[in-house]
């Protein structure tokens, strides 16, 4: 996978600066942008997945038990999931990092 930008020598870039490692943006953890994080109250969650569907960062995933949670490596804390959760199963809380 790619190394940090400042470590590249000119001859290490591919011809035409092509990037073959598709999806390598995953290297960049946007979770650091966050001040609030979503928490799920599974007693209220109906597993509809709208939180997953509305997440601009594709940072919400379904666990094996069918409930949803945020991948905190990427969740930017925008709050859309909590705002759109109609059974009110998601709350945004202060993220102590």
């Amino acid at each position: 996978m790619p190394k940090p930008m400042e470590e590249y020598k000119w001859h290490e870039l591919r011809i035409g600066c092509v990037i073959e490692e598709v999806g390598s943006a995953r290297e960049y953890k946007t979770g650091g942008w966050r001040s609030m994080k979503p928490v799920w109250d599974e007693s209220r969650c109906i597993k509809c997945g709208l939180c997953w569907l509305y997440c601009p960062d594709a940072a919400i995933y379904q666990k094996e038990d069918g409930f949803f949670t945020a991948d905190l490596d990427y969740c930017k804390g925008c709050g859309i999931c909590a705002h759109e959760c109609w059974p009110k199963a998601i709350k945004m809380v202060e993220d102590e990092k």
Partner: peptide, 9 residues
């Protein structure tokens, strides 16, 4: 994929 740098929301 996740890791893109779009603004929050």
């Amino acid at each position: 994929v996740s890791g893109h740098r779009a603004c929050q929301g």
